[in-house]
Design a protein around this nucleic acid. Structure first.
Lengths: 362, 362
DNA sequence: TGTTAGCACTCAAAGAAACAGAGTGCTAAA
DNA sequence: TTTAGCACTCTGTTTCTTTGAGTGCTAACA
């Protein structure tokens, strides 16, 4: 059976009506709402065809039709209109970015939170990670008599720091010494490169006060492993309360427990293609068992060549794909721009003075 | 009417049965379970009396009895037995503390999370805050050519740091200069002390590069205000799903929205007495409208003389007061000990070398 | 006087039956 | 090819009935 123009129009109408109402769509309402000027009976016939083609399904014999995964897929790939971002949405994004100009992590979270707000959906995100955490520079600073801070900067521009509380005071010279030895031995190494071998080397080089050294090395290790560990977060999960799909306690419990499980989130994220495009997973295309009645849309963002992350939404398969995809695209593009400006192109001899920003601490 | 010994035993039995089963307690089950050897009819009479005294209520005429707020209160104040902490609970706490020996914030959160785990209840907590954030020392460090870090230490021992990304490089001398000026002008000031006046003074003292200075001052301000702002967190809220009280979507929505509201949390926390004791709020004693069917138990912990925080639980009025109070007491005591050792007594000339720890960053 | 057995009564929760309404598929006519 | 009409199906809601746990009261008993 061919999918002629009229069938497409009807399919689109069904999908959009269902997205709005969450109720199975009957022939009569399509007949009235669409401008095809066809009677309910005709629509009925067409809908029968669409069902036969696997694009629509009936929850039960005498109910209206609901899009199938395939139906949504066709809609997303071919039928839907591009949603135009509104001024107010742009403004909200701007506010989120402006307000938190200070920290990389916080900008991403603020943008994610705003996105969750605009779409009314739970958002899942991954903070910027480097592909390989190469130690660039290690700095040990005496903060006050009882504490030193270890600051590790990574080749891709991430900076992490750790505080070390001491019970005895250390001398300026010792710290200077420590700085030199650490940089000599660890610069340019990856996480896996910082192994027992190197540590032994550093330890013999420093000689005295091995306890402080051990702690410092531990912190360096921790920092580097944080740099190339994907940190996944979920924002606005309680947004699902607003969907009739989740007006039942069992469903709510299910999605909460599913989203609290790190493994599930990792699995979702790992479904991202690495060609920089948006990934739309509809219904049973979602690779997590407990989420197969939902859809997931993910988009990548980039900070610099080496740093990237992901933002996306999770929600009922009946979601406003058009709007969400447009807004998500816009948000991740903007995010890439803003972050890229601030963190990516630091070596350019721009005359402008500075941009303030802090990230990745603790 | 007098509350004789037998009535007390019966009240206790009712409360404990209700805590376990969540079902209104009938006279027959008390007659069987308690070792009073009385018939259901006798118990019935006594329960009638207890109801008259306002200690028990009936959900409806032909149901069993349920403790009233007053009944719980009497139970908590006079009747309940002290719960003995189990070895496994001690062990879990130890694990939580050991595992995260590095950071003040994280230890508190880890303990809170473990506590939530053991009690099966949502936990509410406040990170350590100082009563007045007096600036002790400001350190500006060049991390790499494009970034400087500002580290602010507070008189009470909290250390915060902020990263500042630059587009131009700065000289070592400028940074040294900055360090001196900042400490000269801002040491010993409180948040409110860092006002336009001081800032102007610093600005004229530095002279060149006012943009960097402005940013640095902004960061200092931010850091100090973070130090004396109460940071409230909630852990394990989805634990409420395991209570029959919350097997209904409306209730779940209600508690989620109530607990997402910062104002409510602040209101709860502000109900803490400042004499260092545990606060138990039962049912309508809870000062938040949406939580009046629940109970809240809060306990303070101290890091040093000036630093303190709060940990507690929120859950159905039918909660295991005995266990929760004992465990909470134990946890906060341990927390105070551990943190006090690490962060409070740093000036003692202890021969031991060091303890590692980091906190308050970002 | 305190305790207990017995009984009538109450009420919520669960199940069964009746009903309304939205939607379908099919047939026959336009 | 489209449409009107009609019988049929199925869900959700309402109403009624039944069941069972629990009470309060009364009268008898120790």
């Amino acid at each position: 059976m061919a999918l002629d123009e009229r069938k497409k129009v009807i399919l689109q109408a069904v999908v959009e009506d269902y997205i709005n109402t969450a109720e199975p769509v009957g022939s009569r309402s399509i007949s009235k709402k669409s401008d095809l000027n066809l009677s309910a009976a005709t629509i009925r016939n067409e809908m029968g065809d669409l069902e036969e083609m696997g694009l629509l399904t009936q929850p039960h014999t005498s109910a209206g039709r609901v899009p199938s995964t395939l139906g949504y897929r066709l809609y997303v790939d071919n039928l839907m209109q591009k949603y135009e971002i509104t001024a107010s949405e742009v403004e909200k994004l701007q506010d989120a970015v402006e307000l938190k100009m200070k920290e990389l992590d916080k900008i991403v979270r603020a943008v994610a939170s705003t996105f969750s707000n605009i779409t009314g959906l739970p958002v899942i995100g991954v903070l910027p990670t480097a592909e390989t955490g190469l130690v660039n520079n290690i700095k040990v600073v005496a903060v006050d008599p009882g504490a030193i801070m270890v600051i590790i900067s990574d080749k891709s521009g991430i900076i992490k720091n750790k505080l070390l509380r001491l019970k005895t005071e250390t001398s300026e010279e010792y710290i200077k010494h420590l700085n030199e030895i650490l940089n000599e031995n660890l610069s340019g190494l990856t996480l896996s490169g910082i192994n027992l071998n190197n540590i032994m080397k550093v330890q013999t080089a420093v000689g005295e006060n091995p306890e402080i050294l051990t702690s410092v090395l531990e912190l360096v290790h921790e920092a580097v492993s944080e740099i190339d560990t994907k940190q996944i977060f979920v924002e606005g999960l309680s947004n699902i309360f607003s969907f009739p799909e989740y007006n039942n306690i069992e469903k709510v419990k299910e999605i909460f427990s599913a989203m609290e499980n790190k493994e599930n989130l990792t699995q979702l994220i790992s479904a991202m293609p690495n060609n920089g495009t948006i990934k739309v997973m509809i219904g049973d295309e979602v690779p997590v068992e407990e989420l197969k009645t939902n859809s997931v849309i993910l988009a990548p963002y980039r900070v610099s060549d080496k740093l990237c992350g992901v933002i996306g939404v999770v929600g009922p398969a009946r979601m406003d794909y058009s709007k969400i995809i447009s807004v998500l695209e816009y948000f991740t593009n903007q995010l890439s721009d803003v972050l890229g400006d601030k963190f990516g192109k630091r070596n350019e001899p721009i005359s402008a003075l500075l941009e303030s920003g802090s990230e990745g601490e603790e």
